[in-house]
Design a protein around this nucleic acid. Structure first.
Lengths: 225, 225
DNA sequence: ATTATTTTGTGATATGTGTCACATTATTTC
DNA sequence: GAAATAATGTGACACATATCACAAAATAAT
């Protein structure tokens, strides 16, 4: 358990000025928790005084919409999870659920803030992370609304392949209805398009195992709606 | 021109620790520029070493999508404009266009960063602003995708009335096609729904002047899709 | 003022996808 | 390992909205 924080990516990245005493303070004010897939890591509406750092695993961020839960993004550790939720309010503004087994580090908010105050590199690291994240949501917005289901599903598959699993062969971590919810399509549409992709020999499916067989065509579909 | 920065909302908010020398440094490293409606304030793809603070006016943030420009949000001064764009990259990642006459303050990025480093209150103010902004985009995402055109248009009208103009009577600052683009509907649909709202006596229109006549009904429509 | 351009208004039609319905697997759960 | 629950497959159909096609206003440009 020793030196856990030292190994944390975000700590490493701002190591040059994060003093040993600060690392130690982190060390004594955090708790590493494991989550099996399907479990909540952060729950909308709950009171919280922690910052959460996702060390390992994949999780979905979802928020209560007017009718149903809406998945807004999928994240992969290592990354901070609860920054936007934690800074505005002490009540969590969205939920995070593990879609694969996860390991998360809960840091006391006050300790986190104190280190943020003491350490300019750390705070600028956080500012950059938040900025990137917002940019990403702009891009997603532009993509999702302009493409139709085929293109968005292609995007999701490419995202899994390129960013989450770094392989052309992977197990779908979420159900088809979740994919549908995420890209704003019905479960049935996702299913139909997947079959279509299979019969067009773009992918192969074996249960939830997906093999991308024609990536360039998939990229084309992703681009052309 | 003196004491311009002192009057800036963001400066005021972090005044307790922003030292006079810092304000002065801001004072000497910024430029206030006026924009007529329709003009670019920030242009995607352009090199920039400034942080932009929108002092007055209303502007739209839009980003190049796969097919067309996509409006992602409307903002009203006073607010920072280019934070996400400026921190990741020196190339602007999206555009901002004045939809009403605007007044923006261009601050040198290095000066801004230096003050950020020196001033913990200021940087935590920025972190909070970014967090809020990201939260907002989650919420918008959940709303837009789950509601249909009527509900989204109702949202837009309420947003104008409640947040931008603070009045039940206002001039639409953007065209119907822009509204359509923003809420992911066609110009024609927006037009038809507006007519519907008029004949249902929910709003009145006189050119671009809108009068909300039945706000509670509008709120109902906003909630129920 | 007169032309050019952008916005708005409205029908007719096409179409992508949602919804419903039900059968068939997988996967939990006890 | 049986029962219960959740996740898939796939057809038939409905429907919200996009698209196309023009006409009429309203703005902007010369």
């Amino acid at each position: 358990m020793k030196n856990e924080c030292i190994d944390c990516v975000c700590v490493i990245k701002s190591m040059h000025t994060l003093q040993n005493c600060q690392v130690e303070e982190l060390e004594h004010n955090h708790a590493v928790v494991k989550f099996k897939k399907g479990n909540f890591i952060i729950r909308q509406g709950m009171f919280s005084t922690n910052v959460v750092f996702l060390r390992k695993g994949v999780a979905k961020i979802h928020i209560a919409g007017p009718y149903r839960e809406q998945i807004v993004r999928l994240v992969k550790g290592p990354t901070y999870l609860g920054l936007p939720t934690t800074f505005g309010d002490k009540i969590n503004q969205y939920s995070v659920t593990a879609v694969l087994d996860c390991e998360a580090c809960f840091i006391d908010l006050n300790v986190f803030k104190a280190i943020l105050d003491d350490n300019r590199n750390f705070s600028s690291f956080i500012i950059q992370a938040l900025s990137k994240s917002e940019l990403e949501s702009y891009r997603r917005c532009a993509n999702r609304t302009q493409k139709q289901a085929r293109g968005n599903l292609a995007d999701v598959l490419l995202d899994f392949s390129d960013h989450i699993f770094n392989s052309d062969e992977f197990f779908l971590p979420i159900s088809q209805s979740d994919i549908g919810n995420w890209v704003d399509a019905s479960r049935e549409s996702i299913n139909r398009i997947l079959s279509e992709f299979i019969s067009d020999d773009i992918i192969a499916m074996n249960g939830r195992k997906i093999t991308i067989k024609n990536k360039s065509l998939l990229q084309l579909i992703s681009q052309n709606g």
